[in-house]
Design a protein around this nucleic acid. Structure first.
Lengths: 207, 207
DNA sequence: AGTATCGTTTAGAAATTTCTAAACGTTCCG
DNA sequence: CGGAACGTTTAGAAATTTCTAAACGATACT
């Protein structure tokens, strides 16, 4: 996803703007938009649309009903609804009685769900990167001391660059943490922290 | 990308841990990590790796050199480097002399580049969603007034739900703006704003 | 037991994205 | 002019992701 994706635009049904159709149109647009958003955030479109359908339903829906509304296949809805559930975006609702279908409803406390995603997906990513950078940095430091000449100089250069990125990712991680914990962030100082830009591009290092 | 992707782990070269190899290994790991990050953020892996190569190079590199280092094809590198350039993550460096190759270097003021991406990609997305929600909301409001009975009730329900999401996206947009402009954000009040969760699921609305 | 109704799994079809090799157009130099 | 050295474009190969239809296993009811 580098160029913005182009999503198909539904052509309006030519006639018959009954009230039902109007409502239908608004909800469909909303649902498709959520599909786009989900895709944008690295989930897939059906997940978003599925969430949309539940979000706009006053009562929990069965798998069958969702399949119908989204015109998708049972299997596809099945796996995607479980993914939504896994991220806490949707929850299963139990009904007793003879009906043994599974019903789902949308988690309306969206902030909570986002928090979980930030914590378990985005933060995992940032921490992994930080971890790796830490390793590299300490390795390079050792290396730089044990070596001399061009090699050491290269190591120092790498060190400096990686340090920049480490700060960036550490800030990102902090930001995510604040979002989850409900803290505060000042992006003014943040940008100053991240961008050192000593710009050292030393012409004396050959490559 | 729903389940975390599994990336191939390079098996360490069995012997010969020469200093060159050590440096090489650290840089390769870094570069591949950036590939993963780029992918995570909805770019593609080569873009990230390409940026990595330039970021770890003390001097600008030609297309040919990048092709070599990344073991990719000329065409592929060509389009991806231009994407990077478009996002301001990389810039072309002019050399005079008989050499008419294009040289590129990494933008080291990463914060600036991120700002551009937030402004031109993420914000565009959020504003698009907000715009659409605004339309829907005002349409539903009109509808709700002109109609009566179940239809009007449904419209009101949709209104309420969409209003929740509108707040969320508006907050997101604000957050992005702060990041770009260097403002401050308090996620404590933010979460309170976003999550109304009046939870109205009215059992009296049939669907 | 036999059958109907669920949700899940699976094999592979379809769609999309990423990548390569070759063709191409330009510029420069002989 | 002819050829060499570039970066870009393009046609289609390769890889990945998304989706469907059918098989399947479990449960409930007759």
């Amino acid at each position: 996803m580098v160029d913005s994706k182009v999503y198909r635009e539904w052509r309006n049904p030519p006639a018959e703007q009954t009230p039902e159709r109007q409502l239908e149109e608004v909800t469909q647009r909303f649902i498709n938009n959520l599909g786009r958003v989900a895709d944008f955030f690295g989930f897939n479109a059906l997940m978003g649309r599925l969430y949309g359908v539940l979000f706009l339903s006053p009562k929990p829906l069965s798998l069958e009903e969702m399949v119908e509304k989204l015109d998708s296949s049972k299997g596809n809805v099945s796996i995607n609804i479980r993914n939504l559930e896994r991220w806490g975006l949707v929850r299963q609702v139990y009904k007793w009685g003879k009906d043994r279908r599974d019903y789902y409803e949308a988690e309306t406390d969206i902030w909570k769900a986002i928090g979980r995603i930030l914590q378990e997906r985005e933060r995992k990513e940032s921490q992994q990167m930080i971890e790796s950078l830490n390793q590299s940095v300490s390795m390079l430091e050792k290396f730089s001391q044990q070596t001399e000449g061009d090699q050491a100089q290269m190591a120092d250069f790498y060190l400096q660059r990686m340090e920049t990125l480490r700060r960036l990712f550490q800030f990102g991680d902090q930001l995510l943490d604040s979002m989850v914990q409900g803290g505060e962030i000042d992006f003014g100082t943040a940008s100053r922290l991240v961008d050192l830009d000593v710009d050292s591009s030393p012409d004396d290092i050959l490559n």
